[in-house]
Amino acid sequence: MTAPACPSFAGDRFPAEIISQAVWLYFRFPLSLRMVEEMLAFRGIVVSHGTVRQWGREFGQAFSNRIRRRLPRAGDKWHLDEVVLKINGVTHWLWRAIDQAGMVLDVLMQSRRDE
């Protein structure tokens, strides 16, 4: 992930590329703060998990907004899938709204079916 030319990175001890990589790893994959710390340490970057947490709190929303803007827009045609599932012997209904490109727009799962 490329680092933004953002003045909010000014004054930080680490370069913007390292901060953006750590924040991207933490929010993109189901990794703990300590796992991100270990991955950076493997690459020779010594940073604590507390610092990664601070970066996530400080820069996470900006990264999320930028990623959301780059997502493809939902198509004008969509359809609704309905699936009946049994989980531990209890019947559940799963509905998914999918556009023509196969992108999942919304998911709803309930233990009762509204009539």
Rank of each mutant, 00 (worst) to 15 (best):
73 R>V: 13
82 E>V: 08
104 V>I: 12
108 L>Q: 14
49 H>K: 13
41 A>Y: 02
87 I>C: 09
60 G>T: 04
71 L>C: 03
75 G>Q: 10
95 W>P: 06
57 R>S: 11
73 R>F: 10
111 S>N: 14
87 I>D: 02
113 R>L: 00
95 W>M: 05
90 V>C: 07
65 N>M: 03
39 M>K: 01
64 S>I: 10
68 R>Q: 13
77 K>N: 04
41 A>W: 03
100 Q>H: 05
50 G>W: 03
47 V>P: 07
57 R>Y: 08
83 V>Y: 02
66 R>P: 05
93 W>V: 01
110 Q>E: 15
72 P>T: 01
82 E>G: 13
107 V>H: 08
98 I>Y: 04
53 R>K: 06
46 V>P: 15
74 A>Y: 02
101 A>Q: 08
47 V>I: 13
62 A>P: 07
73 R>M: 12
107 V>I: 14
68 R>I: 06
60 G>K: 02
57 R>K: 13
66 R>K: 06
104 V>A: 11
60 G>S: 02
41 A>G: 04
82 E>W: 06
59 F>R: 03
57 R>Q: 13
108 L>Y: 14
55 W>C: 02
44 G>M: 01
86 K>N: 06
74 A>C: 02
61 Q>Y: 12
68 R>G: 11
74 A>W: 04
100 Q>Y: 04
63 F>M: 08
76 D>K: 09
77 K>I: 02
110 Q>N: 15
94 L>S: 11
70 R>M: 09
88 N>T: 13
89 G>S: 11
112 R>W: 13
113 R>D: 05
98 I>E: 04
98 I>K: 03
46 V>E: 15
101 A>W: 05
46 V>M: 15
63 F>S: 01
87 I>Y: 01
43 R>D: 04
74 A>H: 04
75 G>T: 08
99 D>H: 09
81 D>W: 09
38 E>V: 05
45 I>D: 09
